[in-house]
């Protein structure tokens, strides 16, 4: 082996070691969660002495847990729909049209993202109380939107920036009505952006804790429950729920990515 080859090989193995350590660092916690959930004992003891899936069974049978999922999914779905609609029009104003006050609008829209979420949650709680809004998962929808709409607007804006305005003009010039332009050109061309916006909205709402903590009132979301149980009353049901929640998010993300890829493949022959 020549010295050049040896140094080549050395560099390649360093690269692999680095990549592997990053992967381990990122995914080991998720793995630990899975391990912690697979114990048959009542407490968190490591290394695990007795293996079992009793807690998985218990978790899935629990009516309370089902309620949690129902609440979290309801909030996430409603937030997704509203955030994508508002984000779509917001992104058009953000990136497509040039108007007076646009630069101020661009800054104002992004401001809520930089607010610490717990502060934002508290502020919203005070605000809801002030206007006398009863707290429930519905008020949490509103709270989530305050933080998620800016993110979704930004995500869709990235797609809008690469959108050639001449496409709309061309369609209009070729006889399409404004509505047909929207349906046949604007929406389909921006679809990947809308889709990623929707994914972001769902996942951010699904995993959100600080805003929910202040604004759900008597209702409880999955992250809130997990936190409460960890603070007081830990059972291996916590890692079970954590694992399920993570898997749900991952499946959604990978599924969405797969769908986009399939769609693109079908188009590009």
């Amino acid at each position: 082996m020549s010295p050049a080859e040896r140094s080549q090989r050395w560099r390649a193995s360093l690269l692999w070691a680095w990549a592997l350590s990053v992967v381990v660092f990122m995914y080991l916690p998720a793995l630990c969660l899975l391990l912690a959930s697979s114990t048959a004992s009542r407490y968190f003891i490591f290394p695990i002495t007795r293996w079992g899936f009793d807690w998985w069974e218990k978790t899935f049978d629990s009516i309370q847990i089902r309620e949690l999922f129902k609440t979290s999914i309801s909030i996430a779905l409603i937030v997704t729909v509203i955030a994508v609609v508002i984000g779509f029009f917001g992104a058009l104003a953000f990136a497509r049209y040039d108007w007076k006050g646009r630069s101020l609008y661009q800054k104002l829209v992004l401001l809520p993202i930089f607010f610490p979420q717990s502060v934002l949650g508290l502020a919203l709680l005070l605000w809801f109380n002030a206007i006398g809004l009863p707290l429930s998962w519905k008020s949490a929808v509103f709270a989530h939107l305050v933080w998620i709409v800016p993110v979704v607007t930004l995500v869709i804006s990235i797609q809008v920036y690469s959108f050639d305005p001449a496409l709309e003009e061309a369609a209009f010039d070729l006889g399409a009505t404004r509505w047909q332009v929207m349906k046949e050109v604007t929406l389909p061309v921006l679809f990947p952006g809308l889709f990623s916006g929707a994914l972001f909205a769902f996942l951010l709402s699904w995993g959100n804790f600080p805003l929910s903590l202040f604004t759900t009132g008597a209702d409880t979301t999955v992250p809130e429950y997990l936190y409460a149980k960890m603070v007081a009353g830990y059972t291996p049901g916590v890692p079970v729920l954590g694992t399920v929640s993570t898997i749900t998010a991952a499946v959604l993300l990978l599924g969405g990515y797969g769908l986009i890829t399939l769609r693109r493949r079908a188009r590009l022959k």
Binding site: D164, A166, L167, E169, A170, A171, F172, D173, L174, G175, A176, T177, V185, P188, V189, F191, R267, K269
Partner: peptide, 21 residues
């Protein structure tokens, strides 16, 4: 308006719809 004129434009960017064949 443009969509009701018997005229048609070929744009500088061509403005071909990228999501269509």
């Amino acid at each position: 308006p443009a969509n009701r004129r018997p005229t048609c434009m070929v744009f500088q960017s061509l403005a071909l719809f990228p999501h269509r064949t």
